[in-house]
């Protein structure tokens, strides 16, 4: 499977497969295009979560999203983790495997947080080598998400979109564009979110994430605990236009409401996707 094949594979609108919704999903088999799983929630476990996943994977496309690949760390790649990840990918026949442009620990310690990397040539080289290694193991492109960050390093040598562009050139990897993260970072770091999106290497983008965040006096935090705000929807409209449309996921990971509420929030994206489709059609007809 190469990146251009995956790029054509617009799965539609998905939501995260979360424990609190297991019962509802098994009883109703809701009308949703696909589910995303948090990879680590289904690794090293053999109980009910796997039983549920096996059934869901028979009926819906699955996408895997991880938080522990530690791709930006100076530590070597955790090969045991990668093997587990690949076993899970094969078991649920996941369409994409993604993680984050970040590091999560060093010297063997896992800090269980998506920590920011400096956008330097050194970090680019470290990450590119590990991305290539991951892709050799998975025998498929890795997809990496732009993270929410709460600081910037003084010695960064390039912008995040430029880092993405160079990483893609080096590795051929894909990207998962989290539109909420762009908004959060733009607010925290004082850049123009729309300009950021215009600089993204869209040919490499396979998927969108949408989510809610929390606003504090001094910064915004990516909390996934509420609906998507109007500004993020407008950024999604632009991202959708710039990309031509990609699989889109609604993330809701804290204070999770019932399935229909999350699904309803995801379905709002349909308006933006359809308005884009109609715009494209009218342009083609013209």
């Amino acid at each position: 499977m190469n990146l251009s094949d995956l790029r054509q594979d617009d799965l539609g609108l998905g939501i995260g497969l979360r424990t609190v919704h297991f019962g509802h999903i098994l009883e109703n088999w809701p009308d949703i295009d696909w589910f995303e799983i948090l990879s680590e929630n289904f690794m090293h476990t053999g109980g009910r979560p796997m039983y549920i996943l096996d059934q869901v994977a028979e009926r819906y496309p699955i996408v895997m999203h991880g938080v522990s690949m530690n791709i930006g760390s100076k530590d070597p790649l955790d090969l045991e983790y990668m093997q587990e990840l690949k076993v899970l990918r094969n078991r649920c026949k996941a369409r994409f495997v993604s993680d984050h442009i970040c590091w999560t620990g060093v010297d063997g310690t896992n800090l269980h947080d998506l920590l920011p990397i400096p956008y330097t040539e050194e970090a680019l080289k470290v990450m590119a080598e590990k991305v290539k290694q991951v892709q050799d193991i998975l025998e498929a492109p890795l997809t990496l998400e732009n993270p929410s960050t709460y600081l910037e390093f003084a010695h960064s040598e390039m912008s995040e979109p430029e880092f993405l562009r160079q990483l893609a050139n080096e590795t051929g990897c894909g990207f998962l564009m989290d539109v909420n993260n762009v908004f959060v970072c733009a607010s925290n770091h004082g850049f123009d979110a729309k300009e950021y999106l215009r600089q993204v290497p869209w040919d490499q983008v396979l998927q969108f994430h949408l989510a809610g965040h929390s606003t504090f006096e001094t910064h915004k935090l990516d909390t996934h605990d509420g609906p998507v705000c109007d500004e993020v929807w407008e950024l999604y409209r632009l991202a959708h236009e710039l990309s031509g449309g990609r699989s889109t996921l609604m993330e809701w990971d804290a204070d999770i409401p019932d399935f229909d509420a999350v699904h309803g929030e995801a379905l709002k994206a349909r308006e933006y996707r359809q308005s884009m489709s109609s715009t494209s059609s009218s342009l083609e007809n013209d």
């Binding site: 620990g105 060093v106 010297d107 310690t109 800090l111 990397i117 400096p118 330097t120 050194e122 003084a154």
Partner: peptide, 13 residues
């Protein structure tokens, strides 16, 4: 000079 990646990550850890 600017911190190398390993030093920065050990510091931030």
């Amino acid at each position: 000079t600017d911190p190398d990646l390993l030093s920065l990550q050990r510091w931030m850890s």
